[in-house]
């Protein structure tokens, strides 16, 4: 079972948030969504779905959560519930798309689609998804421990939806364009060392 800990100690536990939601606290729901949205999204992403499909899955999973909060016995198991539900919803989206594609033989995912989806060889198992979740969680922690300058550079290079160019990054960070590459390499090495310290990095 994966345990998603709040990233700061003063953040409320998932159990606390779920209980407050059950009392009608919309603020607690907002915090729950903020805490788990990225991890819910990781499931359809891991299956190679396109961005609009990823949002559709998120919508259906959080709707199911809002409707089923009272049935969740152990809120600390919420990550498992979310991953299982997201996998089912994702599976249905894939089946529907296959059906539509079989009707449209000339369907071709364009360049945009290829850039924004993950290539996937086979359907991930529940274990694969839990491994992905664990690695994403550790990656978040690792990024937080980077030196600020490295964190800023890697965030812009790898985590920004807009995928800014080297020119834009150079201007934003006041870093000569020519040193972005070498700095990136140094920061990636630093990140790897941190991730290894957190118990991730090895293949397996």
């Amino acid at each position: 079972m994966i345990q998603l800990r709040p990233s700061h100690q003063d953040e409320p536990s998932t159990t606390n948030l779920v209980h407050r939601c059950l009392q009608g606290d919309a603020n607690a729901w907002g915090q729950l969504v903020a805490r788990y949205a990225r991890l819910v999204h990781a499931v359809p992403v891991r299956h190679g779905l396109a961005p609009h499909e990823v949002d559709d899955v998120g919508q259906e999973v959080f709707l199911a959560l809002a409707q089923n909060l009272h049935t969740i016995d152990d809120p600390e198991r919420l990550p498992g519930w979310l991953v299982t539900t997201a996998r089912r919803v994702t599976w249905r989206v894939i089946q529907r798309r296959r059906h539509e594609e079989s009707l449209d033989q000339f369907a071709d995912s364009g360049e945009e689609e290829r850039r924004t989806t993950l290539p996937v060889a086979r359907m991930p198992t529940p274990e694969d998804l839990l491994v992905t979740w664990g690695r994403q969680e550790v990656l978040t922690q690792g990024m937080a421990r980077l030196q600020p300058r490295c964190r800023e550079l890697l965030t812009r290079l790898f985590l920004d939806h807009d995928e800014p160019s080297y020119d834009e990054i150079s201007a934003a960070l006041g870093l000569p364009k020519g040193s972005i590459g070498p700095t990136r390499n140094r920061c990636l090495q630093q990140l790897r060392t941190i991730l290894e310290g957190l118990g991730v990095g090895a293949v397996g």
């Binding site: 949205a37 990225r38 790898f158 985590l159 939806h161 790897r192």
Partner: peptide, 17 residues
């Protein structure tokens, strides 16, 4: 290991709501 890290970073970017 580097390829895995690259994939993790891609998943993180694509998963950011």
């Amino acid at each position: 290991e580097l390829r895995l890290l690259a994939t993790d970073l891609t998943i993180a970017r694509l998963s950011e709501p």
